[in-house]
Amino acid sequence: MILVPCPNCGPRNSSDLRNTGEVVPRPDAATASLSEWRSYLYLRDNPAGWVTETWYCRSGCRTYFTIERNTATNEVRGLERT
């Protein structure tokens, strides 16, 4: 179980939080084509390496924030509130 650093609560067990996945920019819903929209819905880079992802501190302060995490080593850096 990895530690995820919440900006308010500090490093917490990942089971205290919810991973909402890689940060993917949301297209403009009014103008997006269906294929653009489905890329946003379903396609992820999923690299073995650094990824920017969002976590939700669901058992703590209820903040959404992003971190950079190396999916190969679980090293974490670059913390910010969304």
Binding site: R18, R26, Y56, R62, Y64, T82
Partner: peptide
């Protein structure tokens, strides 16, 4: 609730 918070914190702060 989590979905509302996501909108209010992430996209519509």
């Amino acid at each position: 609730w989590e979905m509302l918070e996501d909108w209010l914190q992430t996209y519509r702060s």
